[in-house]
């Protein structure tokens, strides 16, 4: 566990940069973290981040299949929004832990 200043606020993140406490997250932090991946966050991105946060806080296991069936985007769209790690990067930007799923 480490402290990191994101968008002017100190938050707790783990060694890989995932939030320890999802309640510390806000949208500005997502925008700042997204720059590390050269992603400019759009409304579509935020819809996904919101969906991930809701599902995570409801205790559901997240998979790309689930996000693909969410009605927000399909799986191809998800890869285009978060290139190189559709579930991993989106989870980090959503301020939730790294997904512990193989699918």
């Amino acid at each position: 566990m480490a402290d990191k200043v994101i968008a002017g606020i100190t938050v707790n993140v783990n060694a890989e940069g995932y939030f320890e406490d999802p309640s510390q997250w806000n949208k500005e932090m997502a925008i700042e973290m997204a720059r590390e991946y050269d992603i400019e966050l759009t409304d579509k991105h935020f819809e996904i981040l919101k969906y991930l946060r809701e599902k995570y806080l409801a205790g559901e296991q997240l998979t790309i299949r689930k996000v693909g069936n969410s009605g927000i985007t399909d799986i191809k769209g998800l890869y285009q929004l978060f290139p190189g790690g559709p579930l991993k990067i989106s989870s980090r930007l959503a301020g939730i832990p790294k997904p512990a799923s193989c699918i």
Partner: peptide, 18 residues
């Protein structure tokens, strides 16, 4: 139950990811 899709859908997912 673990959200593992049928073969055809799984192949589609892999192709969707490149």
């Amino acid at each position: 139950k673990l959200d593992v899709p049928p073969v055809k859908e799984f192949l589609e997912m892999i192709v969707a990811g490149g």
